[in-house]
Design a protein around this nucleic acid. Structure first.
Length: 491
RNA sequence: GGUCCUGUGGCCGAGUGGCUAGGCAGAGCUCUGCAAAAGCUUGUACAGCGGUUCGAAUCCGCUCGGGACCUCCA
């Protein structure tokens, strides 16, 4: 842990040196998916971004407890669905048990996200499995006088809370302005009349008769409010105050603001020391939205089956593409951008594969420590993966040059470059060659074929050697004739 | 309407007072039976208009785009 890691803290609006509460240990919480539909492109960015944080903290020697929740109790719909929650609605439409839907999309999420080589969280709590904890927390908030019951529902009293605390400290919202309202366009939520103030938010909602997802509570048969699960579960597994809480920028308000209010309302303590938010993605410069027809599911992306996609893009290409941008900048997905990422990634992984083949010399023409240092410097500066990757490409340039014989490297430098490059690419950035389902016999078969091809080439029978190359290419095996003989890769 | 972020070369995308980001694409060369790969060389960009400064893509103001949140959303 020699490195000083600086992270941008949304709460302070500045970069801060990261110091954990308990030396050597980090508690990390990430808002996970609401499992009412297939995972889409929007899910990929926070998953990958916070995977990098998780991996880098590990790399620095911290023991990380990484908690990522699954929201399977649904959230209120505010429009035509009249308070029916998302999962319940989906269940009705698809004629399934609500938990069947949640299970299906939870599995689906795991499947698609793991393809991006995202490490699993240490704990993945489900909201439905923590109803008791949520009820306990709501009771605590009520006891402390920051919540009230109204017609079987419980609301957080934002105005009362703000008298002694600061509601808006994370998002920069001003309570008076929120109360004044956002103009005529603002729609009135169902149940508004039960609240003392329009800014109050639900901790517990009484279920309407047709509402199929419900649990018993001291107040009514109902379901927890939008924000309470994260507060209850992060508190349970990471403590009343923990190190880092992550999520998309869209969750900053109201979700994370309300989390703070709830936790302070219940425990009197600030729940989180470092709040981190990733920026959003756009598609061809436009925001992704269901109504805009540019909502791309991960499975469609991997298969290239969406109408906006010119080809399939592998999960590793997506990962590489996401890492080429800084996590707090918006990122635009386009065919051109993704194709460039695909090629760039190949270049990086090819260089890594060349490392064992390099010959050493008495001197080095490049300073290897510069490459390594600049990489760490970039990561320590709020996880600037874009610059870290630029350093890795400088490493790739050196590797290629040594391989081509235009540069030299000492045995000691090669050793440190190999260790560093492999470690950074594979373990920190989590980039790897994608499995193509080969078994070991392919190696043997290929060497036989290349040996035979070498013979016909020696006889200058280029028609035959080209035919072999073309036929192998048709199968997905690409032959490269180099000065020391032919090599092959899978396309 | 309010609050906040943002606008970089053909494309993506770092940087944020003086010093080459990087990737992809393009051009030339080397290598090569051809191809591929690789290497070398090459581009002089910072929305517009003002201002501050010895010096601004970088700070300030205005204008015009794009986006986020304010309402379920990653």
């Amino acid at each position: 842990m020699q490195q000083n890691l600086y992270l941008y803290n949304s709460l302070k609006r500045t970069k801060e040196l990261f110091t954990p509460i308990t030396p050597g240990y980090v508690g990390l919480y990430l808002c996970g998916p609401t499992v009412y539909g297939p995972p889409h492109l929007g899910h990929a960015r926070p998953a990958v971004v916070f995977d990098i944080l998780n991996r880098y903290l590990h790399h620095l020697g911290y023991k990380v407890r990484f908690v990522r929740n699954v929201t399977d109790v649904g959230h209120l719909e505010n429009d035509a669905d009249e308070g029916e929650d998302k999962i319940a609605r989906k269940a009705r439409v698809e004629k399934l048990e609500p938990m069947e839907i949640a299970q299906l999309y939870t599995d689906n999420y795991h499947e698609e996200i793991e393809k991006l080589n995202v490490l699993k969280p240490s704990i993945e709590p489900r909201a439905s499995g923590h109803i008791i904890e949520q009820i306990a927390m709501i009771s605590q908030i009520m006891e402390n006088g920051f919540a009230y019951e109204s017609n079987g529902s419980v609301y957080f009293d934002v105005v009362k809370y703000n008298a002694t605390n600061h509601y808006g400290k994370l998002s920069g919202r001003v309570l008076e302005e929120l109360i004044a309202g956002a103009g005529e366009e603002r729609r009135e939520l169902e149940g508004q009349e039960e609240k003392r103030n329009r800014v109050d938010f639900a901790l517990w909602k009484k279920a309407s008769p047709e509402h199929i997802m419900r649990w018993p509570s001291p107040w009514s048969d109902g379901f927890p409010g939008w924000h309470i699960e994260c507060s209850a579960m992060s508190g349970k597994y990471l403590g009343e105050t923990f190190d880092i809480h992550g999520g998309g920028m869209d969750l900053l308000f109201p979700h994370h603001e309300c989390e703070i209010a709830q936790s302070v309302g219940a425990t009197g303590k600030d729940p989180v020391r470092y709040w981190m938010h990733n920026n959003m993605i756009t598609i061809n410069g436009q925001k992704m939205g269901k109504s805009l027809g540019n909502f791309i599911n991960l499975s469609e992306l991997y298969a290239g089956s969406h109408k906006l996609l010119e080809q399939a893009y592998s999960p590793m290409t997506i990962r590489f593409f996401i890492l080429q941008a800084h996590y707090r900048s918006p990122l635009d997905f386009s065919n051109e951008g993704l194709k460039a990422a695909e090629k760039g990634m190949k270049r990086m992984l090819n260089a890594k594969a060349l490392l064992p083949k390099l010959k050493t010399s008495a001197t080095s023409t490049s300073k290897i420590s510069d490459v390594i240092d600049s990489c760490y410097e970039a990561m320590n500066d709020d996880l600037n993966t874009a610059i870290a990757m630029a350093s890795l490409f400088e490493g790739a340039r050196i590797i290629n040059s040594v391989y081509a014989g235009t540069e030299t490297i000492t045995a000691a430098d090669l050793d440190s470059l190999s260790k560093f490059f492999t470690l950074f690419v594979e373990e920190v950035l989590g980039l790897k060659e994608e499995a193509l389902g080969d078994d070991s016999s392919v190696d043997g078969l290929m060497s036989i074929i290349l040996e035979l091809r070498k013979d016909v080439k020696a006889k200058k029978d280029f028609a035959a050697s080209d035919k072999i190359r073309d036929m192998l290419l048709a199968l997905g095996y690409k032959i490269k004739d180099e000065k020391d003989g032919a090599t092959w890769t899978r396309e």
